[in-house]
Amino acid sequence: MLIIITGVSGSGKSEYAEQICCRLAGDNKKYYVATMQPFGEEGRIRIEKHKRQREGKGFETIEQYQNIGSALDCCDKEERPVVLVECMSNLLANECFGEAGKPDDIFDGCMKLYSGCRHLVIVTNEVFSDGCEYDAGTTDYIRRLGEINVRLSRAADAVVEVVYSIPVFLKGDIGDVDN
């Protein structure tokens, strides 16, 4: 099952995504694919918050800042884990603004990653409604994130927006999923 979880910053989407992964995984392997590079004090604080949040939940962390399709290359191909990608907006920023980035390859990379998973949960951000004007680079980034979110949502079995920590299903249902 491919599940997309979206919401604004601080909405509770990350915690909800972790809960879903734990429920879907049962006794199966769980990977947390971290895409945020630790730039600056604010970034380090946010990363530490997420690490504390998932302590004791059984996730093995893979740091994958670009080329999301290769995130499981070092793993046992037979294990078919549950994978949480946290988050698409960071991955896209790394691909758009990082050295040798390939933002046009993200969707295909996600599909490659999904092919090696039992379930794939991708967290993304809703950054489209603030009404601000941005420079050309930021506008292109926002457009790209919107396009990726649409493509992933079309491919997904379920799309959930977390609003004030309340999951609102926009597509599909997670229901009672077999492990």
Rank of each mutant, 00 (worst) to 15 (best):
100 A>M: 09
84 L>T: 06
128 F>G: 15
169 F>R: 07
33 V>H: 07
29 K>Q: 15
109 G>T: 10
129 S>F: 14
112 K>N: 14
155 A>F: 06
31 Y>W: 07
38 P>R: 03
163 V>Y: 06
51 K>L: 13
146 G>S: 08
21 C>S: 12
102 K>P: 00
136 A>D: 13
28 N>S: 15
30 K>W: 05
112 K>G: 03
114 Y>W: 15
101 G>S: 05
13 K>D: 01
177 V>C: 13
130 D>Y: 00
51 K>Q: 14
152 L>N: 11
95 E>V: 05
73 D>C: 06
108 D>N: 14
78 E>V: 02
110 C>F: 15
44 R>H: 09
71 A>F: 04
83 V>K: 10
139 T>G: 08
172 G>C: 11
153 S>T: 11
103 P>T: 03
79 E>W: 03
76 D>R: 12
153 S>N: 06
154 R>G: 07
102 K>V: 04
47 I>S: 06
111 M>R: 13
111 M>T: 12
47 I>R: 08
129 S>N: 13
124 T>H: 03
130 D>I: 08
167 P>H: 06
43 G>W: 01
141 Y>T: 01
131 G>H: 06
115 S>F: 01
171 K>V: 10
91 L>N: 04
34 A>G: 09
14 S>F: 11
78 E>L: 09
24 L>V: 08
102 K>E: 14
60 E>Y: 09
18 E>S: 01
46 R>A: 09
35 T>E: 02
30 K>A: 00
110 C>S: 03
158 A>W: 11
125 N>P: 01
119 H>Y: 13
33 V>C: 05
81 P>L: 04
173 D>K: 14
9 S>E: 11
164 Y>G: 00
68 I>V: 12
148 I>Y: 12
101 G>F: 01
110 C>W: 01
60 E>W: 02
177 V>E: 12
137 G>D: 12
151 R>W: 03
103 P>A: 00
118 R>Q: 13
139 T>R: 13
17 A>I: 05
149 N>L: 07
53 Q>C: 00
33 V>W: 00
60 E>K: 15
9 S>T: 14
132 C>N: 12
116 G>E: 09
172 G>F: 10
164 Y>F: 12
145 L>A: 02
56 G>Y: 07
135 D>T: 01
177 V>D: 11
116 G>H: 15
38 P>N: 08
57 K>S: 14
15 E>S: 13
111 M>Y: 04
86 E>H: 04
52 R>G: 01
144 R>N: 10
136 A>Q: 12
89 S>H: 11
153 S>Q: 08
99 E>P: 08
81 P>W: 06
30 K>V: 03
19 Q>I: 01
49 K>H: 12
146 G>M: 02
40 G>W: 08
60 E>C: 09
115 S>R: 13
70 S>V: 09
119 H>R: 02
130 D>F: 02
160 V>W: 09
133 E>Y: 07
87 C>T: 00
153 S>V: 07
107 F>R: 04
134 Y>R: 10
18 E>V: 03
157 D>Q: 14
58 G>R: 10
9 S>N: 04
82 V>M: 02
5 I>V: 15
16 Y>T: 04
175 G>N: 12
29 K>M: 06
133 E>F: 08
157 D>Y: 12
128 F>E: 01
25 A>N: 11
21 C>E: 07
14 S>R: 10
147 E>W: 04
36 M>T: 04
67 N>P: 00
142 I>M: 10
